[in-house]
Each structure stands twice: as structure tokens, then as C-alpha cells.
Amino acid sequence: MVRINGEMIDASGKSIAQLLEALGYSPQRVAVELNVEIVPKASYSETFVKDGDSVEIVRFVGGG
């Protein structure tokens, strides 16, 4: 199980890009931390999560 924004999800083996798509996030409007390290945008397709990982997806909405 992978902890995604505090919730345990069966996502082991998926890439960050796949996770974002499955959870309905726009890759252009997020920042993603994997185990408290930033995942570079260019690496979303080649970065895979495994059991025990913790992912934080920060979503930006408009307004400021």
C-alpha cells in the first residue's frame, strides 16, 4: 500500500504520471513529493511508487 495525501491506496508499481491520471489531477497544476523529496516534473513517467512509500500531491487552484 502507498500513502497518498494521507490515504492508503493500492498503487504499488504505478508511475507518478499514472497516479495523477488515475486520481484525476492535471500534471500542469501540481507539485509532487515522494517520501518528502520533490519529484521533478520531467520524471513523472519514470518514477514508480512501491509499498510503504508516501506521496504528497499538492494541487493548485486559481485565485490570488
Binding site: 500542469q28 497544476r29 501540481v30 507539485a31 520533490i38 521533478p40 516534473k41 486559481g62 485565485g63
Partner: peptide
């Protein structure tokens, strides 16, 4: 970060963090 556009927000945050 004090932009209004969500893509600009994400661009700045990702760039600074990276």
C-alpha cells in the same frame, strides 16, 4: 508564491523546489 493562475503557481513551486 502569490500568483493567481494555477499553472503559473505550479511552475514556480516546482522550479524552486527542484
Amino acid at each position: 508564491e502569490a500568483f493567481d493562475d494555477p499553472e503559473s503557481k505550479a511552475e514556480l513551486v516546482n522550479c524552486v523546489l527542484e
